[in-house]
């Protein structure tokens, strides 16, 4: 008995020792870089949302194909529309074992919340995995809403008691909501939830009246007949919804996309950046990832990495700054 206890204690001490060693180990930047400890994959949104699903799929594929010598650990930091995650990454300057999977709040949150003091153009761009799309959803029980016109009529009739669920002020769905308010001339009440999955659930439970979820977040409910798509905010109809018109077809040129990319903290070593680019390129090219994109209405035909992605980020930052200016930051934050 006593030997077993001492063994248990030895194990405990060993675990403690391992933790302490991990702390002290600073991986030196050598020419042939590979991770020395578990990689933190930070998700700037809540569990169950689009970013979360993507991060977990990428993690699983990397493990399955044995692409990384160390495990990749997804961590959700959804606080403050991604502010928590961005700040966390900024503070990890020079760290080679932390990466971030983004959504467009990567661009908008630093503009809207100047207080967090984050400049994402300093982050290390790794690779763009996909472009996500947006669709307007209502509960299937709303028989009065069949198309965009009847939707607008219903919102106007409800006055500002119409509730739109979203993932947080400053997130892309709140920007799209503000764009719609401006275009169609109505006012809604925007209610933030932690993650797109919870938003979808609240639409099914009739706690909100409409959402602008990504297809991945609503697809299973749509297949089960719980919710229905009204209009798509894309240039062309998505293969997943051949019968749902785009806003453009209806004479409203409203398009909005969201990039899903992987980025490192500021000052990540070149060697590490190259290693991660190789890793995510392999994942991007995998049949599983391409299949996921097709099923979930993501566009995954163009791979963008390193400096090219950096340039793309610059363009998007400028675009979002203009967007926020045109609808007004207060329309998004609801102040």
């Amino acid at each position: 008995m006593v030997t077993i206890i001492s063994k248990m204690k030895t194990t405990a001490v060993l675990i403690a020792a391992v933790v302490v060693t991990c702390l002290g180990l600073q991986s030196p930047a050598i020419a042939d870089w590979s991770p020395k400890k578990p990689i933190e994959l930070i998700i700037m949104a809540g569990a169950g949302g689009g970013a979360d699903q993507i991060a977990r799929l990428l993690q699983g594929l990397a493990e399955q194909k044995d692409l990384s010598p160390r495990p990749i650990i997804p961590i959700n930091k959804p606080g403050g529309s991604g502010a928590e995650a961005l700040r966390y990454l900024q503070d990890k300057e020079g760290d080679d074992h932390t990466i971030l999977v983004t959504l467009n709040s990567f661009y908008t949150t630093p503009v809207i919340q100047k207080g967090i003091g984050v400049d994402v153009s300093n982050f290390t761009p790794i690779g763009r995995m996909a472009i996500d799309t947006f669709v307007l959803w209502v509960n299937s029980s709303r028989d009065d809403i069949t198309d965009l016109d009847s939707y607008i009529a219903a919102v106007k009739a409800a006055g500002n008691t119409w509730k739109v669920g979203g993932t947080g002020t400053g997130q892309e769905d709140s920007i799209l909501t503000a764009m719609m308010e401006k275009e169609f001339g109505y006012d809604v009440t925007y209610i933030p939830f932690p993650g797109g999955g919870t938003v979808a659930k609240n639409l099914v439970g009739n706690h909100v009246d409409s959402t602008v979820n990504n297809p991945a977040e609503q697809n299973e409910f749509y297949r089960a007949g719980e919710t229905k798509p009204i209009v798509q905010f894309t240039a062309e109809r998505l293969p997943a919804y051949p019968d749902v018109p785009t806003a453009k077809e209806l004479g409203v040129d409203m398009q909005y996309y969201m990039q899903r990319s992987i980025n490192g903290p500021p000052g990540m070593s070149k060697e590490a950046q190259d290693w991660y680019i190789g890793l995510f390129k392999a994942l991007f090219d995998s049949a599983e990832w391409q299949q996921f994109c097709t099923d979930d209405g993501l566009a995954c035909d163009q791979w963008l990495a390193g400096d090219d992605l950096g340039t793309y980020h610059q363009e998007q930052i400028a675009l979002h700054r203009d967007l926020i200016e045109s609808v007004g930051a207060s329309a998004i934050t609801g102040e």
Partner: peptide
């Protein structure tokens, strides 16, 4: 303590 859950301000 932390970030405001609605506005995201510290």
């Amino acid at each position: 303590v932390g970030l405001d859950i609605i506005s995201g301000q510290p």
